[in-house]
Computed example of a mutant assay.
Amino acid sequence: MAEAPKRGKTEAPPLPPVRPLYLATLLGSAAAALALFYATLGVLGATGNLPPPAFSNSLCVDEKLAFHRNNAAEQPDLLVIGSSVAWRHFDGAQLVQDVPQVKPLNGAFCGLAANQSVYAANWFLDRTPSIRDVMMITSPQDFENCTTNRTAIFDHKDATDYVSAKASPWAYYMRYFDPFSLARNASSIAAQRSGADFVDPLVFDRYGSGPLDTSRNRETLLYGMVKSLDQECFDAVQALAHRLRAEGRRLLVATTPLHPDWKADDAAAPLLAEFNSRIRAALAEDPAARFWDGDAAQVVESGAFFDAIHLRWSAAATYTQALGTAFYSDHPTKQLHAAGP
C-alpha cells in the first residue's frame, strides 16, 4: 500500500506592504479629528458654553473643581463638607462676621452620599494642612445609598494635578471625553453659570458655597421618604472622625432643616430619631467631635424652603448664624447676633 502523503502546515500568504498613502491617510484623519475636537472646545470656550473637564461626569462636581482651581483659598482652617445641603446652606460671610477668626472653605459637592463626602474631605485634608475643623452639614438622604455608590467621585491624582498643580485642562477633556455628556453640559452651562437657571444654578460665593438665590420654589417637595439608612454611611463618618482625632483636628456634624410637610409623613419621626442616634454613635469614640441637630433647632420657617431639604439663600444666613452659635459659642471673639438653637 502506498504511503499517505504527510500533511504539513499551510503557510499563510505574506501580508501586503502598508502603503505610505494609506498610512498618511490614517494619521491625517486622526489628526484632523483631534484638531476638530479641540476647535470645537475652543468655540465653546469663546461663546461661554465650555463645561469643565468631566472628572466625575457630574457637571456640578466638575464645575466645583474648576472653582477651586481658579480660587485657591488662603490657609483655611474650617472645611465644610457634605452634599448639596452643605454646598447651598453655608454662608461663609455670615460665619466670618460672627466668628472673625474662622477662615472657612466650602468643600461640599452636590449629589453625594456620605461616603463620597468623606472621600472629598480626605482629598481636601491631604492637600490643606491648615484645616483644623471639618464641619459636615448633612441630611438623612445622604445616608441612604453608600453601599451602592462608588466612593471615589473623581481620581485623586488627576483632581490634585488639575486643581493644585494647575495642570493644563486640555488633556483631561480628551481623557474623560464623553460626547453625549459634553453636548448636554454645553447646552446648559451658560444659564447655570449666570444663575438664569434658578433650579440648578452654578454660581459660587468667595468661600465656594452655591447660593440658591431665588424667591421661587419647586412645584413639589421633590424628595420622598428615606426608605432605610445604610450603615456604611455611618462607618465612613466614623472613619473620618478617627482620622481627624489622630491628626489633632475636630469633626463637627450638623443636620440641615427639613421642610415641615416632609416631616408630616408618619415614617419621618422614627427615621429622624434613628438617624440622629446613629450619627451620635459614629462620633462616640471621639470626645472632641460634636453633633448639632439643626432640624430640631427650628431656626427657619417653612417659607424658607426651596424644596423638601434645600433652603433659599435668604435663609442660609439664619441657619449659619445658628451653626456658629452651636459650634463656636465659646470662641473668644464670638459675637452672637440671631437666635441660636
Score class of each variant (00 low, 15 high):
L251F: 06
A167W: 02
L26D: 03
Y173E: 09
K166G: 08
L78K: 00
N185E: 15
W170D: 12
A308D: 05
W292M: 11
A338W: 10
A282I: 04
P201I: 11
F275C: 05
Y172Q: 05
D295S: 03
I309T: 14
G8D: 11
Y207Q: 10
S277H: 05
S215V: 12
V99C: 10
F327V: 01
P201Y: 08
A239P: 04
A165I: 00
V203S: 07
N217A: 06
P53D: 12
H68F: 14
P100T: 09
H242Q: 14
A315P: 06
D213M: 05
D295R: 05
F109Q: 01
K227T: 15
V43E: 01
A183Y: 05
D330P: 00
A24G: 12
V226L: 06
D155Q: 09
A39H: 09
A46D: 01
E144G: 05
L229H: 03
V118E: 03
F143T: 03
H242E: 14
K166H: 15
E232D: 15
V203T: 10
R150Y: 01
E301T: 13
P332A: 03
N49E: 14
L27P: 03
K263D: 08
P169T: 09
F198D: 12
Q75M: 07
Y22W: 14
A297R: 11
T214C: 08
S188M: 14
M136D: 00
C233N: 13
L125N: 13
T318I: 11
R250M: 00
N115Q: 15
R250H: 06
A93T: 08
I137K: 10
D158Y: 05
Y38C: 06
L202S: 04
V96K: 08
F305R: 00
T138H: 09
S187W: 14
F143N: 01
Y172N: 06
Y207I: 08
P13H: 06
Q335K: 14
N185H: 13
A317Y: 03
P287R: 06
K9S: 11
A72I: 10
I153Y: 01
N145T: 12
G195T: 06
I189C: 04
W87K: 11
R127D: 14
H242S: 11
Y176P: 10
C146M: 12
F67V: 12
V134G: 08
A316R: 00
S130C: 12
G248T: 07
E219W: 05
W87H: 14
L240P: 04
Y328A: 09
D126Q: 15
E219H: 11
A289Y: 05
C146A: 13
N71D: 07
Y22K: 12
A31D: 01
Y38A: 12
G208F: 01
D266P: 03
Q238D: 14
S139R: 00
L23C: 08
F327S: 01
K166R: 14
I137A: 07
Q116A: 00
E274W: 00
N115S: 13
V134L: 09
G107F: 01
L240Q: 02
L221D: 04
N185R: 15
I137E: 05
H156F: 06
